[in-house]
Nucleic acid binder design. Sequence first.
DNA 1: AGCAAACCGGAATGCCTTATCCGATTCTCG
DNA 2: CGAGAATCGGATAAGGCATTCCGGTTTGCT
Lengths: 237, 237
Amino acid sequence: MSPRDPHTEASADAAVSAGQSRRIDAERNRGRIIAAARTVFGRDGLNASMASVARETGVGIATLFRHFPRKEDLLAAVFADRMKAYAQATDAALAEPDPWHGFTGYIQDVCAMQAADRGFADILTMNFPGVPELETYHAQAYEGFLELIGRAKNSGQLREDFTSRDLVLLLMANAGVLSATADAAPDAWRRLVAWMIQSFQAPARGPLPDPPEDAALYEAMRRTSQSATAPETGKRR
Amino acid sequence: MSPRDPHTEASADAAVSAGQSRRIDAERNRGRIIAAARTVFGRDGLNASMASVARETGVGIATLFRHFPRKEDLLAAVFADRMKAYAQATDAALAEPDPWHGFTGYIQDVCAMQAADRGFADILTMNFPGVPELETYHAQAYEGFLELIGRAKNSGQLREDFTSRDLVLLLMANAGVLSATADAAPDAWRRLVAWMIQSFQAPARGPLPDPPEDAALYEAMRRTSQSATAPETGKRR
DNA sequence: AGCAAACCGGAATGCCTTATCCGATTCTCG
DNA sequence: CGAGAATCGGATAAGGCATTCCGGTTTGCT
């Protein structure tokens, strides 16, 4: 089949998925694109245009779209390692001897990740049903966070009525503050997070409205991801 | 000058600014446009297109732009009365005998206004240097809120380190939650607000990072309003 | 009733977006 | 070192946006 690979088609495909059988210039460009996209999305958020990524990279539009046929694919490639770090942050938090310290440190770390990367701030409040890499890390982080919650509650320092959905709520709230303040007030988010963490601390100061259902939050995050890839289409009806 | 107004040019201008000397069909259309725009912006947020407002109203695009030359003008007309209600909410809160009740009730009311109108949620975290109506109400609400804060602190129920900038922070955070959850989890915002209010309550549970400077927050709100009227232009550099 | 000004709606402009096409270039292997 | 395939990049398509233009219609004064 292939002129320079006499093996089977399957082996060639395997090599491609491992990222090795491309021409070396193409491989180099792929890396440059991802690096540039990291810069652009981190600076301008998820709405940065594919054209601006191509310009930052120094390649043509077509090159960009050959490597990543849909914008979603580029996002997956760019944020896969950040999602990995996000998922692994629970491990570090679980290694912390004091459960409360682990819990609050984790929340601050995750929110700091949002602040450091405006694109990632949005990614965290979305689900990408078509992109297994991101989905997997999401699920992994969720598992770890559940354990963090359990330990912090058992130690008596976390309110009993705290749920994992409250983290999602905080991530959405933090994304709102970050996108509004941007670099005009780059540390404003720290104060929001501090207010929230102090409120999470036991004992409870009063009752709370019920948190949203898991299914409702998932639906909300799924919908959000729709409008992020397409320009502004859809609105409603 | 004018064929049907033999008076001076000045008197004609005064009549126009009072909204009376237009042709009656034009005046009727103006009212219908504002009503339709209220519906559309409330449902779809500030990014709803002028075309969708015209469609909802049942008039042509040109009619819409003759009445409101820039989108900003339509926004001012639509949200002027909501901003007025926002400014007057402090009066009701100050009438409350218990300072803490007045303070928390005000915060809940304002956040409920955001939840009831997705467009208004965004408006509250913006400044419109070119639109005096909105600016005025903003300033008025600010004055009233300062008094609410003072009373609540004097009663010993509000933390001493709470500042007016914390309300802005909460409004930004709430806007983030509302825009992410939308109608998939329409009550999620209530839980966020409850967490925050419980944290505002004295005594303080710990120190907080400094709030952002007033000037920085104003700059952030000013920048936000830029990108809201124009479609998506600008990004950066 | 007549008539001019004011008003109307749709088509058109210009800029943005994501995504594709195709002719020119560059790499790799024999 | 030469041929062919993979890759490149600018032009282009298709569609959304705010805003403008222009020919036809309505209104209200005389």
